[in-house]
Amino acid sequence: MLYRITVRNADGEKLEIVVEMSEDEVRALAEELRKAGYEVRVEPIPEGEEP
């Protein structure tokens, strides 16, 4: 499935990426980023919607 991941650092800089991963993989990635001090938001992209 496609997911949009938005990551912000302490300075407020934002990075937005689209990935194709399983829900478990995305959850693990988000958890690791949060542990590293980043603010993370994950949104699933519905099938048929443009990323």
Rank of each mutant, 00 (worst) to 15 (best):
V40P: 02
I5P: 00
G12M: 05
D24P: 12
E49C: 04
L29C: 03
E13N: 15
S22K: 11
V19T: 04
V18Q: 06
M21G: 05
E43Y: 12
E13A: 14
E16G: 03
E31W: 15
G37L: 02
E49M: 11
A28T: 10
A30G: 04
D24A: 07
M1W: 14
M21F: 04
E49I: 14
E49Y: 12
E47L: 10
K14M: 10
T6V: 08
I5S: 00
T6Y: 15
V26K: 00
E50W: 09
T6K: 07
E39S: 14
K14H: 10
D24G: 09
Y38E: 01
R34F: 06
E20A: 07
A36P: 04
D11C: 13
A10S: 07
E31M: 15
D11K: 14
S22L: 14
V42Y: 11
E32L: 15
V42C: 05
R34T: 06
R4E: 01
I17V: 05
E23C: 15
V7K: 02
K14A: 08
A28Q: 11
K14Q: 12
T6P: 00
D11F: 10
L2W: 14
E39K: 10
E32F: 15
P46M: 11
P44K: 12
A30I: 07
E43R: 07
G37V: 01
P51V: 07
Y3V: 02
L29E: 01
L2V: 05
E25A: 14
G37C: 03
P51C: 13
D11Q: 13
D24F: 14
E31Y: 14
V7D: 00
K14F: 12
E16W: 11
G48S: 13
L29N: 01
E16P: 03
G12E: 02
K35G: 06
K35M: 08
E31L: 15
I45N: 07
L33K: 01
P51M: 02
V19P: 00
I5L: 12
K35I: 11
L2N: 03
L29V: 07
K14P: 09
N9L: 08
K35P: 00
L15K: 14
V26M: 07
E20L: 13
K14Y: 11
E20D: 06
A10I: 06
G12V: 03
R41K: 08
P44G: 07
I5F: 05
A28D: 07
A28S: 10
G12Y: 04
L33C: 02
E50V: 09
E32A: 12
K14R: 11
E25R: 06
E32I: 15
E49S: 10
I17Y: 10
A36G: 08
V26F: 02
R27L: 10
L2Y: 15
A36D: 04
V42S: 01
E31R: 12
D11W: 13
V18A: 03
E31P: 00
V18S: 04
T6G: 02
L29D: 00
R8A: 09
V19A: 06
R34D: 02
R34A: 05
P51L: 02
V18D: 03
E20I: 09
R8H: 09
Y38M: 04
R41A: 09
A10T: 08
I5E: 00
E13D: 10
E23R: 05
I5C: 02
R4F: 04
A10E: 04
M21R: 03
D11R: 13
E47Y: 13
P46A: 13
V18I: 09
R4Q: 02
A10K: 13
N9R: 15
I45K: 05
E25V: 05
A36W: 15
R8S: 07
E16K: 05
R27Y: 12
